[in-house]
């Protein structure tokens, strides 16, 4: 029952120029659980998620204050960002396989880390695809372009691509918002399997999805975390009036 804390933020503020997008966020993300972020669009869910693998480094105007502790280390300090990103993988809203073969898509990350051995890469590619429940569908066309896959397959490929780095955490930003219900169901299925091995943090616009797959849920509103608790508690017995209003669909 005593799960380890994986991520821990302390008074995290984030500014895009003068605009404050995150206001004093304090959150604990536990290991090998699914944590969901919900809230109306524009409330800072993606922004927060992108802090966790330093993806916001790409945006010049971003300024961050406060701490993000990952495994005892402040990741905004003097750390190896490349190493952080291999340990904290990410899956994006729009499936974004690279315009290369299915095999190359998955081998890309390990190759960038210097893995050259063909048999090692072969096993890594297969294992990742198996874990992402895509192997059976693509094993005969590994050398075909990944852009020929369906949207749902592409997204599972992106999950496999993240898994190939053998990460500890996988961040997912509305991974099913571009997919049909069947593809969505497959990905949700996958997530409940993956949480045995990985810590999963997912942003979702669908409260039903959060309810189905997550252990804990954080409700974001205008850059703040209004409430963070076990998912059943958030959905059946929220402490804050604003959470209740959002859950019951009275705004957002």
């Amino acid at each position: 029952m005593n799960k380890k804390i994986k991520f821990n933020t302390k008074n995290l503020d984030l500014y895009y120029g003068d605009f404050q997008a995150l206001k004093s966020i304090n959150l604990e993300i536990y290991e090998k659980e699914v944590t969901a972020f919900i809230g109306p669009s524009g409330c800072g869910k993606s922004t927060f998620l992108r802090c966790l693998n330093r993806m916001n480094d790409l945006i010049d105007s971003v300024k961050i204050e406060g701490e993000i502790i990952f495994e005892g280390q402040d990741i905004n300090g003097d750390i190896d960002v490349i190493n952080l990103r291999t340990r904290v993988g990410m899956v994006f809203q729009k499936p974004n396989p690279f315009p290369m073969s299915i095999y190359e898509n998955i081998a890309y990350g390990p190759k960038c880390q210097g893995v050259k051995d063909k048999t090692q890469l072969d096993t890594l590619v297969k294992e990742s695809l198996v874990k992402a429940a895509l192997w059976e569908e693509v094993k005969d066309r590994l050398n075909k372009s990944a852009l020929g896959l369906s949207g749902g397959q592409q997204q599972r490929l992106c999950i496999a691509r993240a898994i190939a780095m053998q990460p500890e955490v996988i961040l997912m930003d509305e991974p099913t918002s571009a997919l049909d219900p069947i593809a969505t169901a497959k990905i949700e299925d996958l997530m409940s399997k993956l949480k045995k091995d990985y810590t999963i943090i997912i942003v979702t616009h669908s409260m039903q999805q959060a309810g189905r797959i997550s252990d804990k849920t954080a409700f974001f509103l205008m850059g703040e975390v209004v409430e963070f608790n076990e998912t059943p508690v958030i959905f059946t017995n929220p402490a804050d009036k604003r959470t209740e209003d959002y859950i019951t669909g009275r705004f957002g």
Binding site: R85, G89, K94, N96, F98, Y108, G109, C112, A162, M165
Partner: peptide, 17 residues
């Protein structure tokens, strides 16, 4: 498209890679 770049950086590739 920036989604390619982000995808690459997110698996730990360097800027140059």
């Amino acid at each position: 498209p920036s989604i390619y770049k982000e995808g690459s950086l997110a698996v730990g590739a360097t800027h140059w890679q």
